[in-house]
Design a protein around this nucleic acid. Structure first.
Length: 603
RNA sequence: GCGCCCGUAGCUCAGUUGGAUAGAGCGCUGCCCUCCGGAGGCAGAGGUCAGGGGUUCGAAUCCCUUCGGGCGCGCCA
């Protein structure tokens, strides 16, 4: 257990139980509401508990009297230098220097595993993210979801969860058909046909040529290689419309989807994002998963045929009431019951999505997290309702909605238009600023807050740029350790050796102790961020840690006695190098969750 | 019309499973440094946590309500 707060919480509970045993408190008090936290204001000590406030009423005692007794007991504990009653009945604990020195050794001994937690032990969780439609390259918005999902998965792993990272491939449905048609246009082009986009669009269902990007040109070429002109001849026969199209569209669809997924996988690789599993919607549907899911719902009496009211406000033009197969979503907190079938009898996307989540549950996942774009917000309730229903209440779905990313350059919005060909892809951004920058920036805002991504600002070397600031702190640590090689052998500087041999008791400067305290808070950050499913907290923590470290470093520029390396005092230098090594360890540990490389030097 | 998200310093944002005097960066004001372990330091001003009501020993945080912004609302995924 590396979270020192938990250690103290245990001690406090022991004291409370002891007080109950001594008749000072009623037996059997509920201690769940007893909180132990570091206070915001350092003047209130290192740790505070509200135990007396929470227990006063059920115990029939005055908060301050209860607090006095608890404080008196805690003050005798090792490591506690002072226990004071403050305010309405808080007990503030001050921990002595040796306590903090021991925490520093903890960090060095644990190394990269420092901050690992057991709160998620035994919890198997599925994190689904990206799931961009295979209809083109990824854009910046997809990139945000990719980073948030990937970092969340890593965070949960650090907190002890068993995580599967999953991508849902929407390779069925109208969008993919539209992709196939658009690919057919490129196919005809590759054959040398001179048909204009407008003429061709008239032949497409809906009269629209949806995907005009050049990335489909290689798809057309591949189709020619594979099928020669055989697909075109079918067209001449006038069999483009109706069901006949369904048959000859299949190879187009298959080739196009495969190509698009290859494109997307390349983009993901460039971002350093990986998935354990790609699940195909088409395979799921063809395998009968939808029927299976609907049967499961029917068995619970949650499916019926009914007529929905027209939505208020914006009513679709062709709205008409008609009976549909509906899922009783209202029984699980949704606002209306939701259709499972379209009017032509095929399944709605919702139905296949229920099947998909049913499938996840059948694969053993009770905890599911989906990372979606904010435009899917209206879909969350029904999906959570469906998961609750189809898992008999055993499964739970959390959805993280990612708000829009606005690309800026020097404070000015980057104009993007697919039509004008000025659309900026994720890949272009990665190529310009680098993977690490993209990943870090995507985590500098809560997922549900809009994000400004300024391509100029993120390359600045200043405190305003968190990527630089955190990287620089790590690089400075490494730099100090390299300089220390003038005084120490390499193996003397290893975290293990420093943990055992460095006289860390020499660290008495308030700035040094403050840094240790900050690092001691890392396991708690991991746990709370994992519990809240909020990876951005890691970025903010690292920024604060970097600030504390830079502050100490800078003081050494004015006051030589505070510099980390002092050739005249090997012992003190070793102690400070232990501190520096620990900072590097914690920063690297946090960056690892974010998927950002901790650099050795700034260039 | 309904649902979800959001509203915190001049600006951009943290802090929300209830804790004490609400924080950071930028900007602003004043002082210091001009250093090579390069790519500053210190201090200060600045807030009705959108408004109102409620629950609580205690509310930015929970509940209700009003206002303001974003997203969504059968046969798109």
């Amino acid at each position: 257990m590396t979270n020192f707060i938990n250690i103290l919480k245990e001690q406090i509970k022991v004291e409370l139980e002891d007080m109950a045993g001594a008749g000072r408190l009623p037996a059997g008090l509920d201690l769940d509401r007893v909180a132990v936290d570091p206070p915001r204001d350092p003047a209130h000590g290192d740790v505070a508990t509200n135990a007396a406030l929470v227990l006063a009423k059920p115990a029939g005692l005055k908060p301050r009297a209860l607090a006095e007794e608890l404080a008196g007991r805690l003050a005798r504990r090792a490591g506690v230098s002072a226990a004071e009653v403050a305010g309405p009945g808080f007990v503030n604990l001050r921990l002595d220097d040796p306590f903090w020195h021991a925490r520093l050794r903890d960090i060095l001994r644990a190394g990269p595993a420092y901050g690992d937690s057991g709160v998620g032990r035994g919890v198997v969780v599925n994190v689904e993210y990206v799931s961009a439609n295979p209809t083109g390259p990824m854009h910046v918005g997809h990139g945000r979801g990719a980073v948030v999902g990937d970092a969340l998965a890593a965070l949960l792993e650090k907190a002890g969860h068993t995580v599967t990272r999953e991508y849902y491939v929407n390779d069925a449905g109208a969008q993919v058909d539209a992709l196939a048609w658009s690919s057919y246009f490129r196919y005809l082009e590759a054959l040398g046909a001179t048909i204009s986009p407008e003429t061709f669009a008239g032949l497409c269902p809906g009269g629209e040529l949806q995907y005009r990007g050049e990335y489909l040109i290689p798809v057309g070429q591949e189709l020619v290689q594979k099928y020669g002109d055989s697909l075109a001849r079918r067209g001449e026969d006038g069999e483009w419309e109706g069901k006949a199209a369904e048959e000859w569209l299949a190879p187009l669809r298959a080739v196009a989807v495969a190509r698009m997924m290859a494109l997307i996988r390349d983009d993901l690789a460039a971002l350093g994002v990986r998935h354990d599993l790609f699940t195909s919607e088409r395979e799921l549907v063809e395998g009968g998963a939808v029927e299976r899911a609907v049967e499961a719902l029917k068995a619970r009496g949650l499916v019926y045929t009914g007529v929905l009211e027209a939505p208020k406000g914006k009513v679709p033009e062709d709205w008409e009431p008609r009976p549909q197969m509906l899922f009783r979503a209202t029984q699980f907190g949704d606002d209306v019951d939701r259709p499972l079938q379209k009017s032509d009898g095929s399944w709605t996307y919702f139905a296949t999505d229920i099947a998909y989540h049913h499938d996840k549950f059948r694969r053993g996942f009770k905890a599911m997290i989906n990372v979606w774009g904010a435009d899917h917000g209206g879909y969350v309730k029904r999906m959570q309702a469906a998961v609750k229903a189809i898992t008999g209440g055993e499964g739970a779905l959390d959805v993280k909605l990612c708000q829009l990313v606005s690309l800026l350059r020097g404070g000015e919005p980057v104009r993007m238009s697919k039509r004008a060909g000025t659309f900026v892809t994720l890949r272009e951004v990665i190529d310009e600023v680098g993977r690490d920058v993209v990943r870090f920036i995507m985590l500098t805002r809560r997922n549900d807050a809009p994000l400004d991504f300024d391509l100029d600002r993120v390359m600045e070397q200043s405190r305003e740029n968190p990527v630089f600031y955190v990287q620089y702190a790590h690089a400075r640590c490494r730099s100090a350790l390299r300089h220390a090689r003038a005084l120490f052998a390499a193996d003397e500087l290893s975290p293990e050796r420093l943990a055992e041999a460095a006289p860390v008791a020499r660290l008495t400067d308030p700035g040094e102790l403050a840094l240790i305290k900050h690092m001691a808070g890392w396991p708690r950050v991991v746990e709370s961020a994992a519990e809240a499913h909020e990876p951005h907290r890691v970025a903010f923590y690292l920024y604060d840690l970097a600030a504390a470290f830079h502050g100490l470093w800078t003081r050494g520029m004015d006051d030589a006695t505070l510099r980390f390396i002092d050739a005249a005092d090997r012992d003190r230098t070793a102690a400070r190098l232990a501190l520096v090594q620990a900072v590097a360890t914690v920063i690297a540990s946090g960056l690892r969750i974010m998927g950002v490389t901790p650099v050795e030097e700034m260039r």
